[in-house]
Design a protein around this nucleic acid. Structure first.
Lengths: 101, 101
DNA sequence: AAAACAAATCGTACATTGGCGATGAACGAT
DNA sequence: ATCGTTCATCGCCAATGTACGATTTGTTTT
């Protein structure tokens, strides 16, 4: 029972790790995360200015990062402010670290 | 000059990180890497037996992992033996660790 | 109510991925 | 030389990802 439960957890962790890795697998998303983790937060508009891609594309990458759980956005009308989701950021950090031993 | 060089290195590292993350973004590839890192090596056939997917698909994932530099294969006719590429494995480990601070 | 702004979403185009079966290539054994 | 084994590659397809411009949504200001 215990062993089965642990296997289940391990499988889930592997799926989680795959999802996090997928979120990190695009240079633009890495750049967004790097910007958000150095500055504590960013408005979408700031990112659009910095990144050499269209506003709609930035918005889409932000959406993916949000779905992956790595960032969170709060509306501060008329702007939206994004920051790292610290809880999942730590979780991802741990998952990667333990994957590499 | 030094600063520019460091920025270049940093950009390259980000691209490297994205490529590593992409290689890790599929559960099957994570499983392959996990198997290879616990046992020191594996024949393709062993992986095909363990994994619930077709031989050709396993072979394709192995190819991707090889291109990403995370594994290396040596032919031991008629079999092929795969193992972790330790150098790039360490590189990936460091890149992920420093990305998460 | 209208205009202005920020950001999300929609619709479209194209490239890439992930899966499979079938075929090909390399090699050892018969 | 043929056969069997092992693995890589090919061709195909559906599904997903990436990018864009255009439009919509939501809010503030005029």
């Amino acid at each position: 029972m215990k062993i089965l439960a642990e296997q289940k957890i391990s499988e889930d962790s592997q799926a989680d790790l795959a999802r996090f890795a997928k979120a990190l697998s695009h240079p633009t998303r890495l750049e967004i995360l790097r910007l958000l983790s150095t500055q504590s937060c960013c408005f979408t508009g700031d990112l659009v200015e910095i990144l050499p891609i269209a506003q709609s594309t930035v918005s889409q990458h932000l959406k993916e990062l949000k779905i992956a759980g790595l960032i969170q956005g709060e509306i501060d009308p008329p702007k939206t402010k994004y920051c790292i989701n610290q809880q999942n950021w730590q979780k991802a950090k741990l998952l990667f670290a333990s994957f590499f031993e």
